[in-house]
C-alpha cells in the first residue's frame, strides 16, 4: 500500500450517523473477484435513482463537491459487515481520508468508526480521523458556508487544518502503531513473516486442538 504523510483536498459532508457498510457498498457489488472497480458503486443506493441517474438530493452528487477527497461524516461510520470492499470503494472513488466524531452522549461514548472498518482502512492506507463532536459540528458548518473548502490532513503532526483566510486546525489522536504503519506504508504480511521462526516455535508448543477428521 502507499505511504501516507499529508494530504490536501476538497471536503464533502455526509451528515449521517451509523453509516453501515451495506450503504457504503451494497451486496450486489460484492460478487466481483477483483480488488478494483468498486468506486463507481460507492453509496450506490443513495447516490443513484432507480433509473441509474445521479440522485440530485444526495450530498456527494452536488457539483460543488466534485473531486472531493476528504469525507466528513458522523459517528459509528462503517458499522456492520466486515466487507473490505467498503474501504476499496471509498478509496477508488477518490477519497484519501474520512473524518468522523467520537460522540459523547451522557456517560456513553460512541466511537467515530466501527472496529472492523477502521482495521480494514489501516490495511489499505485510508486514514480515519477521529475528532470531537463539537469539532465535526464546526467542520460541517464551515463546509456549508464556504464552497470549495479544503483541508490538509497531516498525519505526522496529527492535525487537520482547514484552509480559510484564518486557518482553523484540529488535533487528533491516533494509535502510534497505526500511525507508523500508515506513514511507512508497510506490508504487514512481509513484516509478520520476519517472525516465521518464532511462529514455528510457537506452533511446536501450542495445541490448536485440531483434529484432521476422517472425512478430510
Amino acid at each position: 500500500m502507499d505511504a501516507f504523510t499529508t494530504h490536501r483536498g476538497l471536503l464533502v459532508p455526509l451528515d449521517r450517523a451509523n453509516v453501515d457498510t451495506d450503504q457504503i457498498i451494497p451486496k450486489q457489488f460484492l460478487k466481483s473477484i477483483a480488488r478494483t472497480g468498486f468506486g463507481q458503486h460507492l453509496f450506490h443506493d443513495w447516490r443513484y435513482q432507480p433509473d441509474g441517474s445521479p440522485n440530485p438530493e444526495f450530498e456527494l452528487n452536488a457539483p460543488r463537491y466534485r473531486g472531493a477527497s476528504i469525507l466528513v461524516t458522523r459517528n459509528n461510520f462503517g458499522c456492520g459487515s466486515s466487507r473490505e470492499h467498503a474501504v476499496w470503494a471509498i478509496q477508488q472513488a477518490g477519497f484519501t481520508a474520512v473524518i468522523a466524531p467520537r460522540a459523547e452522549r451522557g456517560a456513553a461514548v460512541i466511537p467515530a468508526f466501527a472496529d472492523i472498518f477502521r482495521n480494514n482502512s489501516v490495511k489499505n492506507g485510508l486514514v480515519t480521523v477521529e475528532l470531537s463532536d463539537a469539532e465535526v459540528e464546526e467542520l460541517l458548518q464551515l463546509i456549508g458556508r464556504f464552497p470549495g473548502l479544503e483541508a490538509t490532513v497531516d498525519l505526522e503532526h496529527q492535525r487537520v487544518t482547514i484552509h480559510l483566510p484564518e486557518e482553523v486546525s484540529f488535533h487528533f489522536e491516533i494509535a502510534p502503531a497505526v500511525k507508523d504503519h500508515l506513514i511507512r506504508g508497510l506490508d504487514e504480511i512481509g513484516l509478520t513473516l520476519q517472525h516465521e521462526a518464532e511462529i514455528g516455535a510457537f506452533e511446536a508448543r501450542h495445541h490448536t486442538q485440531a483434529k484432521v477428521s476422517d472425512t478430510f
Binding site: I33, R35, R83, D180, T192, I199, H206, T208, A210
Partner: peptide
C-alpha cells in the same frame, strides 16, 4: 495465543481455525 508482543502495544496472535467463504476470500488468494 500470543506469539509475541509487537511495538506499539499490539500482539501477534495465533489463529487456530480459519473459516473461509466465497465473498471475502478471492482477493486474498490473489
Amino acid at each position: 495465543h500470543v506469539v509475541r508482543a509487537l511495538p506499539g502495544g499490539a500482539a501477534l496472535l495465533y489463529i487456530d481455525r480459519h473459516l473461509v467463504h466465497e465473498v471475502t476470500s478471492p482477493q486474498a488468494f490473489e
